[in-house]
Design a protein around this nucleic acid. Structure first.
Lengths: 209, 209, 209, 209
DNA sequence: AATGAATGAGATTTCATTCAT
DNA sequence: CATGAATGAAATCTCATTCAT
């Protein structure tokens, strides 16, 4: 993340260039999301990403010196976005019931996926460097474990971590329901929602009582 | 990497008519599983599969006239194997408790995955023809729904189908635990096992009481 | 050797936008003429055309995204050239005798063939798309019929068309004489010239007297 | 041409084998004609020829050790057939008018082509060895020149040879008309027939009077 | 002798990446 | 800096021909 604040009254001479660059990068990232999502990492081509973002291939490579680096950047951006969301959620947990937390998890995935489901593609397939993928996974798990700890104070750190992994996997199914027929999808979401509630409840029950 | 489109072709060009041919095909299938698992569908290359199975590239194409046909054949073989396993399980359900059924599901996935986890790769990514993938998914869902219906007779067919989808997704996490460190893996498996039990129990409870 | 089917594509992927590109394309076209002429469509290889034009194979495919598209482009270029020549000839017909017209036809073929005799190869064999070949043939026939109508005004349109087909075929022999020994070739050309004259004369005579 | 006459009362023990071989070869030749005609020399595959003739690929190679040798054999067989026909024609020439001879030429091509038009493919393209092709052409030219000499006794040998080349080329158009629509084809054949008559007549006139 | 499995050079085509303009 | 032409390794697939059974 490049800090976006120049001195407010600095000379504007070089500003437009930077501004243009930022727009260009944004366009590339959007195109990258679109193409990776549609085609998968391997079948996506840098040429198409360049074309869709209205960028010359040479310019694309100026900003992202390799296909992998572009995937990494997308993953990072997505990770930050997810972390934000999870942090928000963590702050609201104290005022929520188990059911509320469970629903919040499912809703959170629904929001994410409506924005970009490509993360599944990139994280679960081989997009980007293994490092970046690992980091991303760790961040998500950490965020979820944190929320779980807050929602169920009796939980040990270890248990929270284990539950986070399982919960994260369960939540992925939310994204996958997008491929189902609408009627089926509705039933699936209801079922998943119920299962997450059950999961949290039972975890709390076991530990608490 | 988009491959030059092959005409839609049968899963297999010609059944081998000699013993030699059968051995060759077996070797190719094993190598196919290995390479698809390691690299994913797109990144796997026919050249590598040929090399690993000690087969000349031309011979590989004699039996599997396209990359897609090889993926389809693997998927089909795996599907048959899974169906067998689920059918076996269905027969034993009458004598089992909920806990027993839940454990059987998890154990079943453990057995499968120790054999070949590539199905996840091939089914969830873009391996093989969409048809074959759809058929495979339907078969798995059907088999699981069947077992659920037998284990919880009060279940409606529709509810069983929905649960099968959710359960199948949960069980996939069993395969994925293979990437975790041994200690973590053990804890995850225990957790998943418990969750599956909880899921079955709550489904039964809701319908029954 | 059947090539993996390409999607039907435009004759040219992208017009070159720089001077360099234009030179490259010219070099490729020349090499294409040479190789197609020597080897025929099927036996000609893109690799050889690239090598002979001093072009990397990837660059060749940048301009002509398939072997067929290259053949089509060559055919089109040749067709335009031929149409020009026939149009020129049509303009001069009013001032010519039958003998003059006959000789002009033969000379026209001699000029064409000294430039590139590959068209016979590409049109009569299976070069390029069937569409392009058909269009080419129609253009040639039309041009010749036009001249015949002008040279022999009494000719019906239908008769002119039939004669054009026959005449065109006869004129092809001019190209083929290139393979004969010089002495033989001279005699053949004289003979063909005489035959074409006879043909025109007899067509005129029949209709006129 | 293998002489087909064994001693009439020789032991029959080995006969069936030879007989089988002859049938096999005949089947291969027919399949060869069909496939070469449909696909052209390059695109025809030995595998398809083997399949269509009900022969194992290994057996095909026992009789014809290369694709070229098969093409040569076909060409040779065709040449003999053509020579026979031309020899027949030569014998009948003394009793014929110019018009009769001209028509006989055209009819002869019609008969040939209805049998196998593949010769054009094989001779004009690159099928078989250059040697065989040259020999074939020479034979046809010789046969035609011979007939011309008989039909027009005043013709010098050299002139007959030249005329044979031109005439042969003209006659090829008969074969090519097969691709035209029926109505057009009829008109073309009539036109060609007339042109051949005119050619012979003018040749006779010039030399005689 | 017959069969068909096996071979591997070579063809077309793609695409990440570099580099001249 | 931007542009897009150029590069070439590598992938998929074919087929004439050989060789083990």
């Amino acid at each position: 993340m490049i800090s976006p604040k120049p001195a407010p009254d600095a000379a504007r001479a070089s500003e437009p260039k930077q501004e243009r660059g930022r727009l260009r990068v944004a366009a590339i990232l959007e195109a990258g999301v679109a193409v990776f999502t549609e085609k998968g990492y391997d079948s996506a081509t840098m040429t198409e990403i360049a074309a869709r973002s209205g960028t010359a291939i040479g310019s694309l490579y100026r900003f992202f010196p390799s296909k992998e680096s572009l995937a990494d950047a997308l993953l990072l951006r997505y990770a930050l976005h997810v972390q934000d969301g999870l942090a928000d959620m963590a702050r609201q947990v104290p005022d929520m019931t188990f059911e509320g937390v469970a629903d919040a998890f499912v809703d959170f995935m629904l929001v994410l996926q409506s924005q970009r489901s490509f993360a599944v593609t990139l994280v679960d397939a081989r997009g980007g460097s293994a490092d970046e993928r690992t980091r991303f996974r760790a961040a998500m798990r950490g965020g979820i474990a944190d929320i779980l700890s807050k929602a169920i104070p009796a939980l040990s750190a270890a248990k929270a971590k284990v539950m986070a992994v399982v919960l994260l996997h369960m939540l992925k199914s939310v994204v996958i329901t997008a491929d189902e027929e609408p009627a089926m999808r509705a039933m699936l979401l209801a079922e998943i929602r119920e299962l997450v509630r059950t999961y949290l409840r039972s975890a709390a029950g076991k530990k608490i009582e």
